[in-house]
Computed example of a mutant assay.
Amino acid sequence: MSAAAIILALVTLQRLGELILSRRNTKRLLARGAIEVGARHYPFIVAVHVAWLIALWMLGRNQRVDWLLLAAFVMLQGLRLWILSSLGSRWTTRIIVLPGEPLIASGPYRYVAHPNYAVVAGELALLPLALHLPYAALLFSVMNGIALLVRIRIEARALATFSRPFARAVS
C-alpha cells in the first residue's frame, strides 16, 4: 500500500468517526430542544465532501506525497481537535442551535468567528495539493466556497435569532 493510500485511509476513518460523533451530538441536542436550521443545503455539503474523498482515492492513492504540505494538513488536524473540544457536545456537521443558550466563545472561537470552516477550507485544498492534484484542490475549494457562502449566512442568522443576546459562554 502506498503512503498516499495510507494517508487517505486515515483521513477516511477520521471523517467517518466525525460523522458518528456528529450524529450522536445531533440526537442529544435535539432531545434537549435544539432546532436544526438550514437543512436544505446540507446534502450539497455532504456531496462536496464525499466527492472530495472519492476523487482523492481515484486520482491520488498512488501519487507521491509532498511531505511539507502534508505536515500543514496535519497541523490543521490539531486545530480541528481544538475546535471539537471547544464545542464539545454542541459540535455537529449540521446547523443545530439551542434556543436561549449562549454562544461558545472559548478556544479558537475567542479569535475567529468560524474556525471550523477555515480548517475545512484548508484541508480541502492542502490534501489534494500534497498529492500533486492542483485541479482537485481548486475544484473542491470553489465548491466548498459556494457551500460556505450559503451556510455561514444561514448559521449567522440562526445564532442571532436563537442564541442568548450579548451572552457568550466561556469554558
Rank of each mutant, 00 (worst) to 15 (best):
L8Y: 03
L8M: 08
L10C: 10
V11E: 11
V11F: 12
T12N: 06
L13R: 14
Q14D: 15
R15L: 11
L16V: 15
L19R: 12
L21T: 10
S22D: 08
S22C: 07
R23Y: 13
R24T: 13
N25V: 09
N25W: 07
K27N: 13
K27L: 15
R28F: 09
R28M: 14
G33M: 06
G33A: 06
E36P: 11
E36L: 04
A39I: 07
A39H: 12
H41Q: 15
Y42T: 14
P43N: 01
V46K: 09
V46I: 14
V46S: 09
V46D: 03
V48G: 03
V48Y: 03
H49K: 10
A51T: 06
L53S: 07
A55F: 02
L56V: 08
W57Y: 09
M58L: 15
M58W: 15
M58A: 15
M58R: 13
G60M: 04
G60N: 09
R61P: 02
N62D: 14
R64Y: 08
D66E: 10
D66R: 06
W67C: 01
W67Y: 12
L69E: 00
L69Q: 01
L69M: 12
A71K: 02
A72Q: 06
A72N: 00
F73I: 01
V74A: 11
V74Y: 01
L76P: 00
Q77N: 11
Q77T: 01
L81K: 10
S85Y: 10
S85I: 06
S85M: 09
L87I: 08
L87R: 02
G88V: 00
S89F: 06
R90G: 00
R90M: 07
W91P: 00
T92I: 02
I95D: 00
G100N: 10
G100T: 10
E101P: 02
E101K: 12
L103S: 13
I104H: 02
S106D: 14
P108W: 03
P108T: 03
Y109K: 11
Y109L: 03
R110E: 11
Y111L: 15
Y111G: 04
V112P: 00
V112C: 10
A113P: 06
A113K: 15
H114P: 02
H114M: 02
Y117C: 05
Y117D: 08
V119W: 12
V119F: 11
V120Q: 07
V120A: 14
V120T: 13
V120I: 14
A121P: 05
A121N: 10
A121C: 09
G122K: 05
G122W: 05
A125F: 10
A125C: 12
L126I: 10
L127I: 08
L129V: 11
A130Y: 05
A130E: 04
L131G: 04
P134D: 09
P134G: 04
P134Q: 06
A136L: 14
A136C: 12
A136D: 03
A137M: 09
